[in-house]
Structures are given as structure tokens and as C-alpha cells.
Computed example of a mutant assay.
Amino acid sequence: MTGEYADVRTGIVGLGNIGHHHADRLVELGVPLVGGMDIAPDARSRFADRYDVPVYDDCHDLYDEVDAVVITTPNKYHEEYTVAALERGCHVLLEKPLANTLESAERIADAAATAEGTVKIGFNNRFLNAVQLVRNRIDRGKFGEVTHVEANYVRRRGIPGRGSWFTRREISGGGALIDLGVHAIDLSMYLLGYPAVEEVSGVTRSEFGDRDDYAYLEMWGDDSGPEAFDVDDSASAFVRCAGNRTVSLEVAWATNRPATHEFVVRGTEAAARFDLLEGDLTIHSASADGPDHLLDTTVETSENDTHADEQRAFFDAVTTSRDIGGDIEDALTVQRIIDGIYRSSEGGHTVDPADAEP
């Protein structure tokens, strides 16, 4: 195999749907896919048949053969496989979130701090062309001071299959908040410049997933019924950061309202509104140049594969040691915000994410 990444032998840990999704893009990118690992025999068999590579039931056997790994396991197992990879000197691209609990996320961060390998977290939505256009305008001062982000990631009916690991708190760490909210929180903080977080207030709800009469329209996997659901299916939250910068958050797997994936980024000179899934982007501003008037500019963006662009950036970092962002520090901040929202909801009051008990 030839190409700029041909020397980075890469494996995948976790051979489910997202593992195949990453594997397809590795092949397209010209990265040598040399193996996969999963504890499930059926998953190993499907992966071996599709990609014609060795598969293993022990991560250490895979790590003997690779320079880098993409880890796509359920959240509970992120720590186990990531720390083991770092101890072997592997580069790691870890799917979001950092972990299923704050304590586990902090242990991963501690391991990464002394590791030789590059570690990046799978915040692929940062690579959406609309997001990159907004970030570019922010960096050039076109928005003035960016002060607030309205973040929406709301499905009308879209709970993952009840009984899958997504709906089991012990494995996932939570529901819609830790699944969809992690993307919305990272994007918001990314566009604000990741200011220090001062306080978090939020409410998480379980209003649909535990119902016998849930309208099964969109799910990933079979439905095992309400007894197999013990996580949140929506969350509303507010994050206050240094300099009076703020984030308002709405995320849901299921609600009685139209779906929305709209983000609004407000600045003192202009604002942006974009759709996270469609990529539609509009810039809003006002002018007193001539008669006072408002300006709404539609920006035509090109569609891009965010996971492919994320992988390309990761392997650029591996081969050139160039910082691409998406670091452990950002992911740990997101994890602290998520933990803070859950604690705020449980306690019924605003919390400081830094006050979490070890």
C-alpha cells in the first residue's frame, strides 16, 4: 500500500456498525487496516469476512500488530481499551464520549498525559463545513465577541433500541444527554473558544422510553420494551462560562415537538444559524451604512464526510505531530459539564462542575 498514511498500521476495537463505518473510511483514505478486535464472535466473523483481516478477542493481540487504533466500543469499555493502547505506545482515535463516568474519563486523561502516542476524541461534527466556516469567521473577528450559543439536537422519535447498550445506564453512563448532548456541548464550547466553565444548571427527563405505548418509529436495533430502559430521553440545560459567555442546550431522543438540529451562534457584530445535519448556514447582521437595515446572508456549503475528514486530521497529527484540537482536555471539560447537568438535575440546583467528588 502506498500513500501518506501507508506506514500507520491501524486496527479497530469494537466491530459493530460504527466500527464498520470507520473501517470503510480507513480503506478509502489509504490507511492500512490490519485487524480488528471484539469480544463477540459474530462481530468478529462479519468484520473478517468484509475486510479480509485478522480479528481477535483480546485487545493485546491486536495491539501487537498496530501503530494506531480506532476505539468504537460502548462507553463503559473506553477506559479499559484506551489505557491499554496508550501503555503499548499506540496512537488512539476514541469515539465520543470520553467515558461513561467522570471518574473513568479522568483516569483516561491521566494516562494520556504521560503517553507517547497521539490521542484524539471523535468530535466529528467539528469538521462539518458549516461549522468550519463559522469558526473561520469567528477567528477573523467577523462576529465580534461571541457570547452565546443555542444548541439543539432534538429528535421527535429516535430512541436507540431499548435493551441495547445505549439505554442501559451501567454501560452507557446516561441517555440522550451523553449520546447527543456530548456533540452539542463540544460544538458550543468549541465555537466559544472553550472558556472556563463556572456553573451548570439542568434537568434530565425520562418521559417516553419507559412507556408501554412508546411509538416505535425510528430505532437502531430491536425493541426490548420499557423494562430495558433506565436512562434519560431528553435534557434541558444552561451553562455559564467565564466572561458571561453562555450555552443553552436542548437534546432529546424523543419529544412531542418537531425535530431540530439548529445551532445559533450569537456575537456582537454578527450571528450564525446552521443545521447540524443538513449543513444549511445563514449569517445574520445589521447595518447603519445608509438607511438602517438588517442583513441575512445564505451561505451555500458543500457536503462533506465528517468522519473521513476527522480521520484525515487524526492521521495528519500522527504523522506530523501537528495539533488538530479535539484533545483530551476538551473532552474532559465536556464530561464535567455532562456530569454537572446530571448532578444538577438530581439535586435540583445549580452546580459548579469543578466540585465533583473524586
Rank of each mutant, 00 (worst) to 15 (best):
M1Q: 00
E4Y: 08
V13E: 09
V13Y: 10
G16R: 00
N17S: 14
H21Q: 06
H21A: 11
R25A: 10
L26A: 09
L26R: 05
V27H: 07
V31I: 11
G35E: 07
M37I: 04
D38E: 00
S45F: 02
R50Q: 13
D52K: 08
D52N: 12
V53A: 03
Y56G: 06
D57L: 00
D58N: 14
L62N: 14
T72Q: 03
T73F: 01
K76H: 05
Y77P: 04
T82F: 04
E87A: 05
E87C: 00
L102R: 15
S104D: 13
T114Q: 09
E116C: 08
E116F: 04
V119R: 02
V119G: 04
K120E: 01
G122V: 07
G122A: 03
R126V: 02
R126A: 11
N129A: 13
A130G: 02
L133E: 14
E145I: 04
E145S: 08
V146E: 02
T147H: 15
P160L: 03
D179Q: 08
L180M: 10
L180T: 07
V182P: 00
L191G: 08
A196T: 15
V197T: 13
V200R: 06
T204V: 15
E207Y: 05
D213L: 08
E218K: 14
E218G: 03
W220V: 10
G221R: 14
D223G: 05
D223V: 04
S224G: 15
P226C: 06
V231R: 09
D232P: 01
D232W: 05
S234M: 11
A237N: 05
R240Y: 04
V247E: 06
L249P: 07
V251R: 06
V251A: 08
A254P: 01
P258D: 13
E262T: 15
E262C: 11
R266M: 03
A271M: 13
A271E: 13
A271L: 03
A272E: 04
F274I: 03
T282G: 04
H284K: 06
S285W: 04
A286D: 00
S287F: 02
S287C: 01
G290N: 01
D296C: 01
V299A: 07
D305V: 06
T306V: 13
H307T: 10
H307G: 05
E310C: 01
F314W: 09
D316M: 00
G326D: 04
D330M: 07
A331E: 12
A331D: 09
V334K: 07
I338M: 13
D339S: 14
D339R: 12
Y342E: 10
S345H: 07
G348R: 06
G348L: 10
V351Q: 11
V351M: 09
D352T: 12
A356V: 10
P358V: 13
P358L: 13
